[in-house]
Amino acid sequence: MGVQGNGPEAGVSGFSERGAGIRAHSNHGNATESFAHDSNASALLAINDSKAPVPEGSLGGNGVFGVTDVPGGTGVWGACNAPSGRGVFGTGPEVGVAAFTEGGVGVQAHSNHGDAVQAFAHDSARNGLLGHNSATAAAPANGAPAGNGVFGFTEVPNGSGVVGSVSATNRDGAGVCGIGPVAGRFIGDAVVTKNLFVQNVNILQRLIELEQKITAASQVQQQISQLTGKLNTLQDQVNTAVSNLTNRISAVEFQVAGLQTTAHTHSG
């Protein structure tokens, strides 16, 4: 070691009015290593106690600032090797943890056996998760869905891209709510396992009622068809009876005419 110190408050202390209080370099090792052996302390504590606001465009004002030029490296890396804990934790009056990238992913999360991202809100005037796309240009017409506030996708055979749910006791909430000139759009089949209401009308119940009316109308139509058949049969019977009666009348008229002719002959 170049320098080793030991003291009741600090082993080594450095101060500078304008420069770095302590500076370390290493060509092939860690520039700085710090170890703590107390669960109530931190291996590295960095405090910026300035009360002045951060100058516009400046990257200063941080408790810890990390930069790397290594391709694939990480500016600040946190890990927890204990059975429970967090790799990185942030807290702040506006944002606990913030991320930005010009052309990449702002925040990326992976988990092999847990939820990749969990978000919890504890205020009824706020949201558990807010997704906002502030671009005003139209989304590309072809390709993957884009321009969305939230996009969900899954490759699990019986999973869903996006699922919304409310507690069983929440009678006024909705699992999924859409707001807009077109509140909902489905590209593919839609499966509804319970009632479907449109403007407070139970569409399923109305369909059942219409089916019942159609069934009743079909039964009436069948009865009309049966009556029409009976009427046709009766008409045929009447026509036959009239024809037979007409023939009999004609026969009687012929006999009467014959009798009249005979009577006239005898009288002459």
Rank of each mutant, 00 (worst) to 15 (best):
M1H: 11
N6Q: 14
N6H: 11
A10Y: 08
G11A: 07
V12F: 09
S13Y: 05
A20Y: 02
R23C: 04
N30T: 12
T32P: 03
F35L: 14
N40Q: 13
L45W: 03
L45Y: 04
L45N: 11
L45E: 10
S50M: 03
P53I: 05
P53T: 14
P55S: 10
S58Q: 02
G60W: 00
G61N: 02
V64M: 08
V64W: 03
V64D: 02
F65R: 15
F65T: 12
F65E: 11
V67R: 09
D69T: 14
P71V: 14
G75S: 13
W77F: 14
W77H: 07
G78E: 01
G85T: 00
V88S: 05
G96F: 03
G96Q: 06
A99W: 10
E102D: 12
G103F: 02
H110Q: 05
L129Y: 07
L130S: 08
G131V: 10
N133H: 09
A135V: 05
A135E: 12
T136L: 11
N142Q: 09
A144S: 08
N148P: 01
F151Q: 05
G152T: 02
E155A: 07
S160V: 08
V163L: 13
S165T: 14
S167M: 01
S167V: 00
A168N: 11
T169E: 09
T169W: 05
R171H: 05
G175Q: 03
I179W: 04
I179H: 07
A190H: 06
A190Y: 08
V191M: 12
T193Q: 06
N195G: 04
Q199C: 07
N200F: 09
Q205N: 15
Q205M: 11
R206I: 03
R206Y: 13
I208P: 01
E209H: 14
L210V: 13
E211G: 02
K213P: 01
T215L: 06
A217P: 01
Q219E: 14
V220R: 11
Q226Y: 02
L227C: 04
T228Q: 12
L234C: 04
Q237H: 10
V238P: 01
N239Q: 13
A241I: 04
S243Q: 15
L245R: 10
L245Y: 10
T246V: 05
E253N: 15
E253H: 06
F254A: 10
A257Y: 00
A257E: 08
L259S: 01
H264V: 01
H266A: 08
